[in-house]
Design a protein around this nucleic acid. Structure first.
Length: 258
DNA sequence: ATGACGGTGTGGCACCGA
């Protein structure tokens, strides 16, 4: 079984890239972030023609998340229960697999703009709420995957310039502590279960030839629960779509499970 | 300190992202 996460930065602009990618990478489920469209404009028909179902949680202009899957999902939850939020950032659902139900939590984590800002405070509140809720979800669903655009570079090696960018957004002690708190729930960063190329990133700035110079961050992650961890056989970033015409600034991350 | 790219909106630029 293969799962993936991809921030596509407007599904309107990049639907064809998603379809092309799915044709080349027929994953069982794909978590999308930054749809930037409302549910009424979600391309269910085009995905269905490609052999995929979808559950979506859209919003105009900003945010928006979806789970695209080979088989229909159940028990869809939108945003974090108990956390008031005007922004569409989380969609969770259960995928039936031969090994049993698999709970998928797909998130577009808050960016936070700048430490000390109101948006940064929102990010920390949001991370708190997500942590509390994922802890509850894990009790109900031992087979759980938390994936998405975390907007956190967990370690210095996940940044092209950990010294110059020290204590800036994605790199702060607070954000990294929240990432660690997720791991402390029993989740494992699937990417780090395997040897990876140095300077492996999942996002590159559009500006200043960021991708060509590999000036990026690894901020898109797939975390697996304790019982899933032994079943993970591979995890990697697929840089290929970042070379497309009109690419998203993020690349997909893919995990393979037995 | 700022802007560099790119998407979106009802715009002639501003706002946001990371």
């Amino acid at each position: 079984m293969r799962l993936a996460t991809w921030n596509i930065n407007s599904l309107n602009v990049r639907l064809q890239q998603v379809l092309d990618w799915l044709a080349a990478n027929p994953v069982d489920a794909l978590g999308l972030q930054e749809l930037k469209l409302v549910d009424e404009k979600f391309p269910f028909a085009a995905l269905e023609a490609a052999g995929y179902h979808a559950a979506c949680f859209g919003q105009k202009t900003y945010n928006g998340v979806a789970i695209v899957s080979r088989t229909p999902v159940s028990d869809v939850v939108r945003n974090i229960p108990g956390f008031e939020d005007e922004q569409a950032r989380v969609i969770a659902a259960t995928l039936d697999t031969p090994q049993g139900p698999l709970r998928l939590v797909n998130g577009y984590f808050v960016n936070g703009q700048e430490p000390g800002s109101e948006k940064f405070a929102y990010k920390l509140r949001w991370l708190d709420a997500l942590h509390r809720w994922v802890g509850e979800e894990l009790k109900a669903h031992p087979r759980l995957v938390l994936m998405g655009d975390f907007n956190v570079a967990p370690e210095d090696r996940d940044s092209h310039d950990p010294v110059g960018l020290k204590d800036t957004i994605h790199h702060t002690v607070e954000e990294r502590a929240h990432f660690q708190a997720m791991l402390d729930l029993g989740l494992t960063d699937a990417f780090r279960l395997f040897e990876q190329p140095e300077k492996s990133f999942s996002w590159w700035d559009y500006r200043m030839l960021g991708f060509q110079k590999n000036r990026g961050l690894r901020i898109d992650h797939i975390l697996v629960s304790e019982v899933l961890r032994p079943t993970v056989t591979a995890c990697s970033v697929d840089r290929a779509p970042r070379k497309n015409q009109q690419p998203s600034d993020h690349a997909p991350v893919v995990v393979t499970l037995n």
